[in-house]
Design a protein around this nucleic acid. Sequence first.
RNA 1: GCCCUUGUAGUUCAAUGGAUAGAACAGCGGACUUCUAAGCCGUCGAUGUAGGUUCGAUUCCUACCAGGGGCACCA
Length: 585
Amino acid sequence: MKEKIQKLIQEVLKTLDMEGDNFSIEHPTDFKNGDYSTNVAMVCAKQLKTNPRDLAEKIVTELCVRQDLTQIRKVEVAGAGFINFYLSREFFTENVKEILNKKEEWGKNDLLSGKKVMVEYTDPNPFKPFHIGHLMANAIGESVSRIVEFSGAKTIRANYQGDVGPHVAKAIYGILNSEEYKINGILNIKGTVSEVANWIGKCYSEGSNFYDTDEDAKKEIELINKAVYDKNDDEINKIYEWGRSTTLEAFEEIYKLLGTKFEYYFFESDMAKIGEKIVKESTPSVFTESDPTPEQAQNGQRGAIVFHGEEYDKKLHTRVFINSQGLPTYETKEIGLTITKFEKENPDISIITTAIEQAEYMKVVQKAISIMHPDLEKRMKHITHGMMKLSTGKMSSRKGNVITGESLLRDSMDIVLEKMKERDLSEEEKKNISEIVGVSALKYSILRSSLGSDIIYDFEKSISFDGDSGPYLQYTSVRANSILKKSEGIDTNGKNDIPENVTDLEKIIYKFPEVIEYSYSELQPHHIATYLIELASAFNNFYGNTQILVEENKYMAYHLNLIKAFNQTMKNGLWLLGIEVPERM
RNA sequence: GCCCUUGUAGUUCAAUGGAUAGAACAGCGGACUUCUAAGCCGUCGAUGUAGGUUCGAUUCCUACCAGGGGCACCA
């Protein structure tokens, strides 16, 4: 429709002997001002030095003599010179039909058709807890993956995990010094995968404490680190393999709960070597070896291999890629990872999701890569998330543990279960619903605001499910489902009239595809979240003020179709946020 | 010190240079013996400060104030 109006205006401009393509067509915030609105007269009036309102009148007159104004009921000049378009009843009726036909396809676009997009997100580290930041990255990455998919791309989901490095050695040190291990080795560690993974996470933080406070422990951890790398100690190898696979398995359980499935798992241990080779080959052309400090020189060390970002863009800075001990840093691994992705899948776009602290660093790394491969510069995108802060200020979960991503999820689910106590549902059903709704409460809290900003997670409010929340959206859909189910046996013969008035609900539903396009172009899932709240609110208003399943409702057939169309839109929209809709709740 | 980023209602968030700055929560006030009240309706209430560009600025530019992040061998 937007394209159609745009074309119409351009034709009119031509007949009026004017030019201009920098005008915009948008939806007025208030329905009173029409369904579409353009500022073309205001933009053009300046060049012509005429009054914008007069010009607008002229354009409208010209528009109205045209034959192809189907689906437009009225065109009007308003305000400072806006031209407002009012869509006809037929347009909205057709739109409902279109949605019922398209079903899961409703809202898709072809902005990326034939393209391949790789999205990397979550990136937890084996041996460390899956914390809240990983939860955020997962929610965002999954949503972005789906938005990209809805735009016609083949989406490839990737996860990048740090399976070597000091954190692993700290965890192993913690395990070696734990009571449980001392008694009977790792076989003595009992519990579910998730419990064992939590225990390993605890060993990590204990090991980490020792590293910071105890010189002997620090030395020992450095030896373990080397042993992990060299694989020359049987006992350490055994613990390493066991710990790595246990924590990875625990992550999989969380992904399942969250509704994510990765095609690729990349590991730092593999990327280090690849990156190192690339960096060394590009020294000194891209990277430079800095002079060693006097201290380093005394130890017989060389300078670090660095990249001077500021030489290419003064907003960038210098970063070390290979340190003076000859070890590759994270930057180098990132290069290895990026190049590996392009070699394996050659995606048209490669999106990475990380915490916002990495924003400046990533710019430098991506600059270094684009100097070696100029064609990749425009294909790499980095999106970030802020920190999740808990408004209550509490740092431990209901069960008294440190708040990990998983404990936050479990708490959400527990509260939902509690709320459903009174509902007439089986225990099995309640459990399933509490999982879906608990995940939704969290995901929505993360996705409702724009990327990069911190999120204040209010336990009480987010789980209260009022208003601006995931469960509110789900509940709205469940109500729609419920009425559709009840209507199944009802005969709608003689109730096929189409109402003359168009509801706000219909005026919102048809915008869905535009919202997705916009959300994709900005890589911002929150536009969808905002839209769905508006949609749900319009539905609840309709539902609350319309008696549908009553004998005297002669619009029943249309109303039921409208509800179906709403429900399809809500379902597709929630899918884009990675949220499922329960049958009942 | 330099670079990036954010300041919107009591609180948590929206707003592709457009019309009367939109929600939710909290507060206050309603309706319903109707299809799920986790709902609906009404009401109170906000653009950090000072300039500039523009027909029009929450949005762009400059300065200041206040938060967050980053700036060489961590990830």
